[in-house]
Design a protein around this nucleic acid. Sequence first.
DNA 1: CGTGGTATTGACAAGTCTCAAGACGAGTGG
DNA 2: CCACTCGTCTTGAGACTTGTCAATACCACG
Lengths: 258, 258
Amino acid sequence: MTELAFDTKQPALQACAGRKVSCTNCCMRKLCIVAGMHSDQMEAVDQLVEHWHPSPRGRHIIREGDQFRQILIVRSGAIKAYQTLENGDEQITDFILPGDVFGMDGLATGRHIAGAIALETTSVCAIPMQCMLESTGLAKAAEHQVLALFSESLNRKDAHVAMISMNKSHERVAAFLLDISARLARRKLSSSHFVLSMNRSDISRYLALSQESVSRAFAKLTQAGILACSGRQVDLLDFQALSRYAGRTGPADLQQAG
Amino acid sequence: MTELAFDTKQPALQACAGRKVSCTNCCMRKLCIVAGMHSDQMEAVDQLVEHWHPSPRGRHIIREGDQFRQILIVRSGAIKAYQTLENGDEQITDFILPGDVFGMDGLATGRHIAGAIALETTSVCAIPMQCMLESTGLAKAAEHQVLALFSESLNRKDAHVAMISMNKSHERVAAFLLDISARLARRKLSSSHFVLSMNRSDISRYLALSQESVSRAFAKLTQAGILACSGRQVDLLDFQALSRYAGRTGPADLQQAG
DNA sequence: CGTGGTATTGACAAGTCTCAAGACGAGTGG
DNA sequence: CCACTCGTCTTGAGACTTGTCAATACCACG
């Protein structure tokens, strides 16, 4: 089985994965920058947007220090954003799913601070910043959308901070799974049954835990009957219970419920 | 002594604190949205910008759930941004210093997710979003700046994540102090001698630690001769050593060096 | 059927959280 | 000037969780 963040049996992503499509019939148009645009506006954006070739798993889409030239939107696949710290450790700063924008980190200084690597075969669209600022008509139409996506990106980071702030490993993992689940749901994909596109090590560096703790957290949640998992395949069995843990040692605490 | 994030003896902030000023002679013009603008552009922005009355310590500037109407820029003072979690805990998501923008979290959904409270007497400028999108001339001039500030905001959040990801409490506190220090330096204020405007509890909820651990971390760094502090007054004595700790258990580990 | 990357599991040391008590400083009222 | 109070900050001791090191299991792939 190939590694996908989504169940390929579901139609939405399969429709456009890997193929060059125009914005008007792109499956991500409801989440991306063209959301809410008229078809003529969309066509204007289409002229501007570069549809890049799909990147295979492991390929860098952005390298740390690269010059900033455009903002990017994922059309299909999944990406991890990372930053190399002074001591050489790789901090995973984001997991980017179809419809998410990324690459705005380079706008402030002109150079990208964070790198981005495809977690599986991934297609992205690029909106060159230069064009964006020059083309008045489009800028007008897209400006609000761009800002909204920025804002969403900011909120995603706050959610990340909230996740890491939980003190128990199974809470962080529960919150992580719920977050992924909710984001998949927004994309009309199964929220209870999915295949993670990142390995345990990526998750651990995203959640500020050791790989082993992530593994143990999965085991704990499994033993509690809250989820079933085999490697990256995850089935969420009890959302309520999961939410309780993600809600930071809420009403009921996790005992060896078995 | 009043509580300030900055040494009031330094001229930059004193000049405009609390008084209504135009952008052209605001002390924050080099960091804010009007950075790099011609004076005529600046005046156009000036027409648009609302200079709000100073907020006393403890006052809400934004409440969670408030309708989004404008983005805000701090002119003087300091602010904490927070989010109430499911279990009622307050997660501090940001400390906002003069020249920083905030409030963009509300753009995505139209309502603010995070609240903002003044940590000391604080003046902010508001740029109504409606105006911003409508006034073409200005939008053109300010667009790049707005995006750059957004981008900076994103990068600040990644820095926050990196901070929380450190596993030892004194590393997180070291990173925190270096971050504050660097941000003060950008504002031409003393980077080695300052008064924190937030209490230990705020710091702890920002760094995902208990209050006690923060206190102990301060003590540890003090005993190691790296800083001197008395309550919120902080003097950084050894930047190199501080950077080593903030660099995540780097070359030299912190022993009871005394 | 090996091989390499990934994932799990165990045991111990190390660090943090929690609970609890006390110290300190600023502000108030006698 | 003093005693008192409140919020903040510090310090101590024990329980608990995680990180680390190490060994083993698992899976896809050639």
